[in-house]
Nucleic acid binder design. Sequence first.
RNA 1: GGGGGUGUAGCUCAGUUGGUUAGAGCGAUCGCCUGUCACGCGAUAGGUCGAGGGUUCGAGUCCCUUCACUCCCGCCA
Length: 594
Amino acid sequence: MNKYRSHNCNELRKDAVGKDVVLSGWVNKKRDHGNLLFIDLRDNYGITQCIIQKENSNFVELEKIQLETVIRIEGKVVNRSKDTINKEIQTGGIEVEIQNFKILGKCKELPLPVFSDQEYAEEIRLKYRFLDLRRKKIHENIILRSKVISFIRNEMSKLEFLEFQTPILTSSSPEGARDFLVPSRLNPGKFYALPQAPQQFKQLIMVSGFDKYFQIAPCFRDEDARADRSPGEFYQLDLEMSFVEQDDVFKVVEKLLVNTFKEFSNKKLLFNKFPKITFKEAMLKYGSDKPDLRNPLVINDITEIFSRDDVSFEIFKKLVKSGSNVRCIVTKKTKDKPRSFFDNIDKWAKEQGASGLAYFTIEKDKEVYAKGPVGKFFSEKSLNEIMKKTGSEVGDSIFLACGKKNELEKITSLARDKIANDLELIDKNTFAFCWIVDYPMFEKDEVTNKISFSHNPFSMPQGDIEKINFDKPLDILAYQYDIVCNGVELSSGAIRNHIPELMYKLFSIAGYSKGDIDEKFSGMINALSYGAPPHGGIAPGIDRIVMLLANEKNIREVTMFPMNQNAEDLMMNAPSEIKEEQLKELSLSLKIKK
RNA sequence: GGGGGUGUAGCUCAGUUGGUUAGAGCGAUCGCCUGUCACGCGAUAGGUCGAGGGUUCGAGUCCCUUCACUCCCGCCA
């Protein structure tokens, strides 16, 4: 027998009564009755109640012991009488009568309570992460994360994907996020970059003939944090396949995600076959390329209505004439909602920086009319037309926004969430996956008018390569896709461009010369000219998958040792200053920005 | 880089219109308690009210500056 334990703290049941056992664990909780002391002993697996009477010579010392001290106890398993059974814990039918004990790890006064459901400040949680991680909820989240990852590994292996590691020290790339840089001692003045994703490597793996690759890959991006975005590093299930079309990738990922979500959550999947929504349609109907499809509300464009003579909503009409659009959200059967419901949404919209949301409700007496502050501007005929266009009926309400396309997408997307939340239209007990497809290859920067890649520059453009009209780059669509679940962007992927000439052409549109490509992507562009298979892949975010499964809103709740918003590790004190001689060795000198 | 929120005991928080010695629960320490499982009871200790400045007879409270944490915008191919 191991000297620390004969059983773990979640192992003993009624059938062990009478046995002599050795348990080790943390003192989770004490209940001191003066002549009788209960100690809840906790380890990774569970809790066992231990008990000691005053007659025992160890009583005095145990009575004084700090919570979270690690102890080893020797004792006898005893039955609990019927009225003292604790159904909350799995070992609740028995308890262990302590005969002897030993302190294995002392504990100072705690800076935060471990045994408590209380929320407390992030700063202290991160500084004492090892204590925080002992707490039930987050402990279970981290275990879930581990299980999800090994489940995914297993599924991928079953599908005959091979797992490979790719370099962590690689080269800086000109596109995308800021790189984390690592100075090279042997090459003074030169830097490695940590990979933002193993993008080029996984393509090189395909060129090397391995056919199907995956990796639980660390990715590093030096960008600002959000609740669902760790600063610094995060993990992707990176995968790539040769000789595939878009649908082949979809098939693999759909199966994997459906299996994973069914395995680890009791929530319903709204779609087993994920709907495909084009980028363009998503931006119109949901105002976003990461729509929450649990939300039944859709956005409609009704700009045309405002060029009718029988509509006298002059403010909107004037804006429409100067190029604005009008989009609306219909809420079903809301005619009896109080005035405050509508006004709150209008007020909320103003707080979001929009000029507000106009609204009216469609009513009918003898004829159809619109009720509400702007109702009087609409004729019966125009209302019929609106109802036809938006699928609305008498008793429904319509919220209207007018503006330029970008502003409209932003405010209607926010309004869609806000209104659905107010009306409690979102079923929190479901997962709604979808594919967003047909992303444009390029986009135009509104300020600089410069054309740049809208997503991944290595994506394959759609259509017959011979016939692509490069003079209209903004019309070129790519085999580029995202997976979205409940409004969370889980991953993006693409069929890659494996044809060097085509890549030079596309990069030239974004302002890169052949020389730039040869220099910046030398490994890959070179490889593509030695017989590259058509290939494609995707990279679902592991952290976000676990977030959804654990029902957490913050990525730090599913990350073992996260950094804070300023990308500092408060426990390890990273980043830290370094010695002058280290700088010297790296041929670096500091010039700190003020 | 910008905007919002928060900051009071080890932890979670209350603190009225600016007014006596800044409070509670948990935790800590000490004492009592033989069936608890958030055990119970009593006592004690514990405070740079984030920091600095200002207004005032008087500031935790009002004003200015600043710092920390957090949420959001920008950013994240």
